Amino acid sequence: MLQFTVPGMTCGGCANAVRKALTAVPGITAIQADPPNRRLAVDGDVGADLIIRTLADAGYDASPIA
């Protein structure tokens, strides 16, 4: 599972927008958004770069958590 910090994801509406953007990416099997902590976990056969680009296109910055 890949984990990210998403500073702009501050509410449920933001989490829904993030989920909607990532749902369109082939290979993602699970998305867990945690707006209070501004964290995101994504599972599936997809790379971190694609997730970061997809979120950027949706208006959200994201950084991987090591």
Score class of each variant (00 low, 15 high):
Gly8Pro: 12
Pro64Trp: 04
Arg39Met: 13
Thr29Ala: 05
Pro36Ala: 06
Leu55Ile: 00
Gly59Asn: 10
Asp61Lys: 06
Met9Glu: 09
Asn16Leu: 13
Leu55Asn: 10
Ala41Leu: 10
Gln3Trp: 07
Ala62Ile: 00
Leu22Thr: 00
Arg19Ala: 15
Pro26Lys: 06
Gly13Met: 12
Ala33Ile: 11
Ala66Pro: 15
Ile28Ala: 07
Gly13Glu: 09
Ala66Trp: 08
Leu50Tyr: 02
Cys11Arg: 12
Asp43Met: 04
Ala30Asp: 13
Pro36Thr: 01
Lys20Trp: 10
Val46Gln: 05
Ile52Pro: 02
Cys11Thr: 12
Leu55Ala: 04
Ala66Asn: 14
Leu22Gln: 05
Ile31His: 00
Arg19Lys: 15
Leu50Phe: 04
Ile28His: 06
Thr10Val: 15
Ile31Gly: 03
Ala62Leu: 02
Thr29Val: 09
Thr23Ala: 14
Thr29Phe: 10
Arg38Cys: 06
Asp34Val: 13
Gly27Val: 00
Asn37Ser: 15
Pro26Ile: 02
Pro64Asp: 04
Pro36Phe: 08
Ala58Thr: 02
Thr29Met: 09
Lys20Arg: 15
Arg39Lys: 15
Arg38Gln: 15
Val46Met: 00
Gly59Pro: 11
Ala17Gly: 13
Ala15Thr: 02
Asp49Phe: 00
Leu50Pro: 03
Arg39Thr: 13
Ala21Asp: 01
Cys11Met: 04
Leu22Glu: 06
Thr23His: 12
Lys20Met: 13
Val42Asn: 00
Ala56Leu: 05
Ala33Phe: 07
Ile28Glu: 00
Ala21Lys: 03
Asn37Val: 10
Pro35Lys: 09
Leu40Val: 10
Cys11Ala: 03
Met1Trp: 09
Leu55Lys: 01
Gly47Asn: 13
Ala48Cys: 00
Gly44Met: 05
Thr23Val: 10
Met1Gln: 11
Gly59His: 10
Leu40Cys: 01
Gly27Pro: 03
Asp34Lys: 10
Ala41Gly: 12
Gln3Ile: 09
Arg53Glu: 07
Gly59Leu: 12
Asn37Asp: 11
Gly44Ser: 05
Asn37Ile: 08
Asp61Tyr: 05
Thr54Gly: 00
Ala62Asn: 05
Ala33Asn: 07
Gly8Met: 13
Asp34Pro: 08
Met1Val: 14
Ala62Lys: 05
Ala62Phe: 04
Ala41Trp: 02
Asp57His: 02
Met9Ile: 12
Ala17Phe: 09
Leu22Met: 08
Gly13Trp: 11
Gln3Arg: 15
Ala62Ser: 01
Gly8Thr: 11
Thr23Cys: 10
Ile28Thr: 05
Gln3Ser: 14
Ala48Ser: 14
Thr29Ser: 08
Val46Trp: 04
Thr54Met: 04
Asp61Ser: 14
Gln3Lys: 15
Thr5Tyr: 03
Val25Trp: 08
Thr29Asn: 01
Ala66Asp: 15
Asn16Val: 11
Val18Ala: 05
Gly59Ser: 10
Val46Lys: 01
Ala30Met: 13
Leu55Met: 04
Leu22Asn: 06
Pro36Val: 03
Asn37Lys: 14
Asp34Arg: 09
Asp61Arg: 01
Gly13His: 14
Arg53His: 10
Asp43Arg: 12
Pro7Ala: 01
